[in-house]
């Protein structure tokens, strides 16, 4: 309860990430591609003295379409997972909001990618958001894991 969430949009849908999981939000500038990497991994981008692995959230969640940034400058959420830093590319980062309810089950219809990453629905001041687990996004589509 009263946990802070970072609210963003992925594939047009409003999602939330626990603020404790988020390091910062950056604007994507340079991108160094990684040939032969899974397609949802767009490349590397520098953040101060380290390189972040850039993940396209829409592709990671198997939404079919790559992420289309809402603004001129693409925004990405920086998270750390198992000692590595990632930049999660989203449509846009909207706000930070307080969770007003417990996490509840999502009702049916969500795609495989959503199901894998979603922890449930949470009420906030700006409406219900789908709470995602950053770690599950980073792992990417399982089909490519082989």
């Amino acid at each position: 309860m009263n946990e802070l969430l970072l609210i963003a949009r992925i594939g047009g849908r409003r999602i939330g990430l626990r603020a404790t999981q988020v390091n910062s939000v950056i604007e994507l500038d340079k991108l160094t591609p990684i040939p032969r990497a899974p397609s949802y991994i767009l490349g590397l981008t520098p953040l101060r003295s380290s390189a972040l692995t850039v993940v396209d959230c829409a592709l990671a969640l198997e939404l079919g379409q790559p992420t289309r940034p809402a603004e001129q400058v693409a925004q990405a959420i920086v998270v750390e997972h198992e000692g590595h830093s990632y930049a999660l590319l989203v449509d846009e980062v909207e706000d930070v909001a307080e969770a007003h309810s417990d996490v509840t089950e999502v009702s049916g219809e969500a795609g495989a990618g959503w199901k894998r990453a979603a922890q449930g629905m949470v009420e906030t001041a700006i409406g219900p958001v789908l709470l995602l687990d950053a770690a599950a996004i980073i792992i990417g589509p399982l089909a490519e894991a082989a």
């Binding site: 032969r36 991994i41 390189a51 990632y86």
Partner: peptide
């Protein structure tokens, strides 16, 4: 070191930033 999913390609050993700040594999 690189993220595990990138290491899994078996082509890269790691990454570093060059003097101009751009990452190189």
């Amino acid at each position: 070191p690189l993220a595990p999913r990138v290491m899994a390609t078996g082509i890269y050993a790691g990454t570093t930033l060059l003097d101009d700040g751009s990452p190189v594999l």
